[in-house]
Design a protein around this nucleic acid. Sequence first.
DNA 1: TGATAATTGTTATTCAACATATCAAATATC
DNA 2: GATATTTGATATGTTGAATAACAATTATCA
Lengths: 168, 168
Amino acid sequence: MTVSKTAVAEAARARKEPVEPAETTALQLGELSELLGYTLKRAQLKIFEDFLRCMAPLQLTPAQFSVLLLLEKNPGRNQTEIANTLGILRPNFVSMLDGLESRGLCERVRSTNDRRSHILLLTERGRNMLVRAKRLVANKHEARLNELLGPTNRAALLAMLTKIVNEF
Amino acid sequence: MTVSKTAVAEAARARKEPVEPAETTALQLGELSELLGYTLKRAQLKIFEDFLRCMAPLQLTPAQFSVLLLLEKNPGRNQTEIANTLGILRPNFVSMLDGLESRGLCERVRSTNDRRSHILLLTERGRNMLVRAKRLVANKHEARLNELLGPTNRAALLAMLTKIVNEF
DNA sequence: TGATAATTGTTATTCAACATATCAAATATC
DNA sequence: GATATTTGATATGTTGAATAACAATTATCA
């Protein structure tokens, strides 16, 4: 067996010296930490994680919350319209609506002027749920973000992300 | 059935008047555009999309690129260590490595001092690929982002995202 | 008008990302 | 030396995202 780098490392470790990349040390992210896409993704996961935690009492995912918000602001639209503006494909939106409708949060009503389409409406229960959901988001989730970043930075962050979404 | 809002809308449409939310108009995002998580996710999708476009000649996904970067900066680590720092679960990292190794970009070497683990190394080919990949990322992908945001804003954005990742 | 095309919601299906349980081999612990 | 832990791997399940195809309905336009 040849004297390997790991053998050297082992010897150093026996002497309790720090080794080249000390095996017990956190890895170097290197250029990864400069990659916007990488950091963006990790930040997004963190934020969704917190969102789910804050929303646990209501059992609403970010996607479901976004649907309810959109229905509130745009009552009477059909499935295609809602799905499109959320970037959800129509086939995948079906089961999503099934879930919300079976919980009594929204309803599909056959449109009278285009009997192919379903008009989407929040139910009373859906509106109540949305009120509580908004409160949780504002007081737990976004409040924590505001605390971390400060309102100015938070606004700047949102502005840049919006720019990316709209102009990139 | 009561006279519904949709009925009113229908009547108005018959008169060719613009209705409350004119059906042909883009939907109102409303509070959705103020939701950091929502905007963050959409921005992330946009950026990954562009990354894939820029990287198409090399056929590298963001995840694969991040592995190669990490192997370059941390040669000789084992699968668990690399997977962990990338937030990839060890079972899922296996097939990922299979892909990279079958393309000759990296190799697993049985460790001599712990024969359970595989030391991961970039191959010569992997290093060459990485050089080209970095060039594409810098000159096409990140350059476009810099053009959109400006270097100062880009740095500020990255700093805030990093803060979220590390402190949220 | 009537034939043809397009749209809507839906189903089926595929693919990738993500997660858990389990295993044999090797190592660590005590 | 018996027991527990770690490592890479397999199997498997779940979810999100994507495409093709279908019946019902509506739009188009010759």
